[in-house]
Structure formats: C-alpha cells, structure tokens
Amino acid sequence: MVKETKLYDLLEVSPSASETEIKKAYRKAALKYHPDKPTGDTEKFKEVSEAFDILSNGDKRQVYDDYGLEAARGNAPAGGNPFAGAGSGNPFGGAGGYGGGHHGFSQADAFNIFSQMGGFGMGDDGFSFSSSGPGGFGGGHPFGGGAGGMPGGFGGQGFGGRSARRPEPDTVSMPLPVSLEDLFHGGVKKMKLNRKGLHGERESKVLEVNIKPGWKAGTKINFTNEGDYQPECQARQTLQFVLEEKPHPVFKRDGTSNNLIVNLPITFKESLCGFDKDITTIDGKRLPFSKTQPVQPNSSALYPGLGMPISKSPGQRGDMEVIFKVDYPISLTPQQKQAIQTNF
C-alpha cells in the first residue's frame, strides 16, 4: 500500500496506474492548467508537473510510494533519516542518491517538462516527437540524458550534480487578427511562415491555428519548436499567436465579457410613436423588434442568451444588449414647435 496518494490525486489516476495512463493524465492536466490557457492556474500547473516528474520515474515513484512526497523530493522525513549511509542497504544513500544539494521543483522545471513533452503539440500518448536525437527521449525515461532516467542534466550525481542545460528557445509573439464571427463560430486559421532552417536556409511552413468558440482578444496559442532554428538551443523558437479582434460593423463585445452590444438607430418620430424593425443576431438569425411606447434616448433592452459563446461552459452564451440611438433633431420649424406645444 502506498504511503500517500496526493500526487496520484493531482493527476486523477489510481496508485496502480500504468506509465501510459500517467502520461495521458499529465497531458490532460498540463494543457488545462498551463498559464497561457483560459483555464490556466500557475500553481496547479507546477504541482501536476512535479507529480508527473516523480511518478514517471520508476525509482522516484517507488520512493514516493514507500516514504511519501518529501522523501521523493530528497528531504529526510521528521523523526530520523532512513536514507543515511551508503552501506546500510538503503537504496537512496551515497553517491547518486537523493540526499544533499536538493534542487526544489520550480516553475522553470514545470515549463521545461512541458516543453520536453511536446508543449501544446502533445499527442494523446503524451508525446509528439521521436525517441532519440535532440529533444527526444533516452534511457527509457521521458526526460532521458541522465543516469537512472533522471531529467536531462542530472547525470549520475543525483540532485546534487545538475549539469548546465541548453538555453531555452526564444518565444516570439505575433498578433493574429480575427473577426467577431471567427470568435463566435470557431474554426481554423492557416498561417504561412518563412523561417530559418537547420543550416540557416529559408523554408516555408503552414501552421493551422485552431480557434475555439468564445475565445477573446488576448488569448495566446503557442506552437512549440515551429519558429526559426536556434543552433545554441538545438531547437526552434516557440511561436505565440495573440488573438486580436477586428472591429465589427454592427456588434461590439462588452469589454472582456461574453455580452454583445448593438446600436439600433431610430428617428425622433419613431422614438415617440413606436416602430417595427428587424435585428440580425451574430449567428445570422432574424429577430423582430417593435415598440409602441416612447423610447428614451440611449435606453436599452437585454436579450439573454444571444451573445457570444462561453468557452468554459459549452452550450451557453452571453447576452445581447440593444441600445437605442435616437436621431434627435437639432432644430425645429415653427409648425413643428406649434404641434408640440399643442399636443404636449
């Protein structure tokens, strides 16, 4: 029986979960909590990454199951250190063990694991690239490169002997203008890139940016290892597209909410005597609209559920607010003045 289940609970798997199940669970959790996602949670992203770092390594997972999280982190539990002494039969003592010089798990470690696992391009099995070569997997562990399957750069000295890592590739941000209809319906935008290849040559690449219904201006979509090749990193830059909403001739989003605002022009006469008009909604539906009583300038009417989709709540939408814009006269003829004075 395992000593504690916190890490398994973070990934929503059982203590008997297979390696494949742990990888898939990490993919799901990392994509959900990544800080660049609308559902992002920086601290949760760090926690699930550390859980994966421990549970995806056979040795560290065994330590966690037997002694708990602090032991797996390389910290001795209170009330005595069962890891002391290389000759005591303890598998964690001496050179190559977890004691001494422990490196606390950081946000940088979390992002590094996410990048090594393929970033936003991770497949259903948790991987998106080959099992050998730069950035690949070696030694039977997803982070290869170090003895015992430790994350690349740890080598045979355990946590106390971390070697220098290659610098992380740059992240290059670029705007992606999209229409309000694109943000309503969702869809795919194809972006043609001209980038530097392995030897500095120019090459073309077409990326498909999947836009989900209800996304807002400022949403960031990352493509790991798709930009210019950087020799010092032995990897390509990360491309980050930032959504920008194009102005719409009729509708306007109400700040960062899911509500839409539409102005309805009416004449001064219509504001007093009423009117019958049509409004076309963002999804192309005809909405009959009529008034029989006077309408105050800049007053409004609210129509629930006719706004933008709510990305975090599929099937639900914001509201549509109709604001009446009265073409108020700037002058009156003597006859018009007389009519008003007679009837009001």
Rank of each mutant, 00 (worst) to 15 (best):
Q296D: 10
N263H: 14
P294H: 10
S299I: 01
A301D: 11
I282N: 00
S299F: 03
Q296F: 05
I261S: 13
G305Q: 12
T267Q: 00
D276K: 10
L287M: 13
V295D: 00
M308I: 08
Q296N: 11
P309L: 02
I261A: 07
P265F: 10
F275E: 02
D283R: 13
L287G: 03
T280I: 14
L306K: 08
S300Y: 12
V262N: 13
F268T: 09
P297L: 10
N258E: 15
G274D: 06
D278W: 01
L260R: 02
K277G: 07
V295R: 07
K285V: 05
N258F: 14
T292V: 01
N259E: 15
T292S: 06
P309R: 02
L264K: 13
F275W: 08
T292H: 04
N259I: 11
K277W: 00
P304N: 12
G307Q: 11
E270F: 01
T267N: 03
K277D: 12
Y303T: 04
S299Y: 04
G274S: 11
L272T: 07
T292A: 04
L272K: 14
T280C: 06
N263C: 07
F289M: 14
A301P: 01
P265R: 13
V262P: 03
S300T: 12
V262A: 11
G307R: 01
F289E: 14
R286E: 09
G284F: 08
A301M: 09
Y303E: 06
N298M: 14
Q296Y: 09
R286H: 01
D278I: 08
K285T: 09
N258T: 09
S271P: 03
F289C: 06
F268E: 01
L302N: 04
G307S: 02
I266Y: 04
N258P: 09
T267D: 00
A301T: 05
P294M: 13
D283L: 05
G307M: 02
L287D: 09
L272Y: 01
L302G: 04
S300A: 11
T292G: 05
N258W: 15
P297Y: 14
G307C: 04
S271N: 08
G305W: 11
L306I: 09
T267C: 01
I282F: 08
T280P: 07
G274M: 08
A301Y: 05
F275M: 09
K269N: 15
V295N: 00
